[in-house]
Amino acid sequence: MKCAPFDYVRAASVDEAVTTLSQADGDGKILAGGQSLVPVLALRMARPSVLVDVNRIPGLAGVTPEGDAVRVGALTRHSALVEQTHHPLLADAARWIGHTAIRARGTAGGSIAHADPSAELPVVAVGTGATVTVAGPGGTRQLAAEDLFVGALMTDLAEDEMLTEVRFPLPTRWGFAEFARRHGDFALVMAVAAEVEGTVRVALGGIGAVPVRAEAAERVLAGGGSLREAAAAAAEQLTPTADLHGSAEFRRAIAAEMIRRALTRAGLS
């Protein structure tokens, strides 16, 4: 199907993008890589009256190391995340995003702001304790990734706000594991293990509406428990929903295995 008509604004700056969103009065959408938004428009699941194209705003793309973290500009393409070497966990996770043509256009900021429950980058953001920078009409604000995701495809972003940057702490040890039916398909389950400032964090995606910390697993590890015990404790805590891709038991078992693999890859055994 074809998209419904909309006004197209090619923003030259973040200020212009945010102002245009404000003027759209809740009926505007940011167009970045378009790999999630355009299908939604084509299927007429959304019909915003204004699209604000941010692709030509200078300075919004790039991966910059900064102390114990890297700053990722909202317009950084997934393919650039795969190629960069500053944050290996981000590169590992980005390889799992869609297919080559999707990674060439899809953006880090777009994926996180879209908040798809089976997307990779939101899980890395929660798993590493990332901070997002958001620009709005009143200036910029920062919030923790864990506070950004409020539901499936829902974030704390206001209708006239735009995510501009994500700061991902650089873990000293890390592991990423994902289970999908085919490479590039939506993940059934994925797990991130990251040791940040001496603490092991474990996050899961694809299992609920938002990425979740596997706190039971973290507690077991902090108490000196084994990886298997940690994975089992995390699985016990989960209440996955069954659908045609897998029963609740299957998803719980796969989640435990992905946690075990992520922790093993992190060298935490």
């Binding site: 197209y8 167009l31 378009g34 355009v38 699209l51 393919s79 999707i102 060439a104 256009r105």
Partner: peptide, 9 residues
């Protein structure tokens, strides 16, 4: 770069 021509205006 490869692109889906249906996902780009």
């Amino acid at each position: 770069q490869p692109a889906r021509a249906c996902l780009m205006f």
